[in-house]
């Protein structure tokens, strides 16, 4: 394997324009898992673009209408950030549920997005906050809504020559913010069901993790919430959830469990919040 270590963002973008494009690496908490074993013939010939030294990309910036996380911002950075704590407390909730301190100190939010795990912990809250992803390449910069970023299992809008440079989160007033991670244990766990819900003047956002090939907004559930239709039990959510998600049986849980727990979380967490839920 080879590693390219650019000293500037421009240089990084220039290197990404190569064919084949090198694979960006930063906190390495996903790529290095079982590294020697996973270092198969393909990885051995692969070229990595190490952006970890581009310290300009590690920042949390609060402006009037937006909070920006640089591409190298770690979970631990967010946990320590007063700005995040004030405006986006679910970012802290989610960050604290990522692995352990040892992972939180290394793993980046941007890495969580491009690793594209359906069970990611950081993505649901970002999506529920209407975050956008800033992608940069040699040919320019573009911004994509995170809820439109994924198109299937590990399928995303990022082209191989693009680098995520920042995550932008619009600052709004939320009257509801709910984050749930259901893992097999209370720390150091991979999500079996993830849920983030927000409500603002922009409406409802209901984001589910580990129940579909990708993390997604549950638009039918959102519509149900907007409609104010009565919900008297988790079963009343089943139809909408069924339209939104497609959980599977795997080594960590079952389709049945995921589907039911998602409904139960939404129901119980909104009961007492929404008059429609009783």
């Amino acid at each position: 394997m080879k590693v390219l270590s650019p000293r500037s963002l421009d240089e990084a973008c220039a290197l990404l324009a190569r064919d084949p494009a090198p694979r960006p690496i930063a906190g390495a908490t996903d790529i290095l898992v079982h590294w020697p074993d996973n270092l198969n013939a393909k990885a051995e010939t692969e070229t990595y673009l190490d952006i970890s030294a581009l310290s300009d990309l590690r920042h949390i910036t609060r402006e009037d209408d937006v909070l920006t996380l640089g591409a190298l911002t770690t979970y631990w950075d967010v946990i320590q950030s007063q700005a995040c704590r004030d405006d986006f407390p679910m970012l802290l909730d989610a960050a604290r549920q990522v692995g352990s301190v040892q992972i939180q100190s290394r793993g980046t939010w941007a890495g969580n997005i491009v690793n594209a795990s359906p069970a990611a912990d950081g993505v649901p809250v970002l999506m529920a906050y209407d975050a956008t992803v800033v992608l940069r390449s040699k040919s320019g910069e573009m911004e994509v809504r995170l809820d439109e970023f994924y198109s299937g299992y590990k399928q995303m809008q990022r082209r191989p020559d693009q680098l995520i440079t920042a995550i932008r989160i619009p600052r709004r007033t939320y009257d509801t913010q709910i984050f749930e991670k259901v893992g097999p244990r209370r720390a150091q766990a991979i999500s079996k069901v993830g849920l983030a819900i927000t409500h603002s003047t922009e409406g409802w956002r209901v984001v589910a993790a580990a129940v579909a090939p990708m993390i997604l907004r549950c638009k039918s559930v959102e519509a149900l919430l907007e409609s104010g239709a009565p919900v008297r039990s988790p079963d009343d959510l089943a139809q909408a959830i069924d339209q939104d998600v497609a959980p599977i049986d795997d080594i960590r849980s079952t389709r049945e469990y995921r589907q039911r727990v998602l409904a139960r979380l939404i129901y119980h967490d909104l009961k007492g919040v929404l008059p429609a839920f009783s």
Binding site: V3, A28, T29, L32, A53, V101, Q102, S105, R106
Partner: peptide, 29 residues
């Protein structure tokens, strides 16, 4: 070897990190 057990914990710039998940070249400087 996958960042679960923490037996390989070191400090990277003073903060705990799993050394099994750090490529050595990254600790430059």
């Amino acid at each position: 070897g996958e960042g679960e057990c923490g037996a390989c914990t070191v400090y990277l710039d003073g903060v705990p990190a799993n050394s099994c998940l750090i490529p050595t070249y990254q600790v430059s400087g």
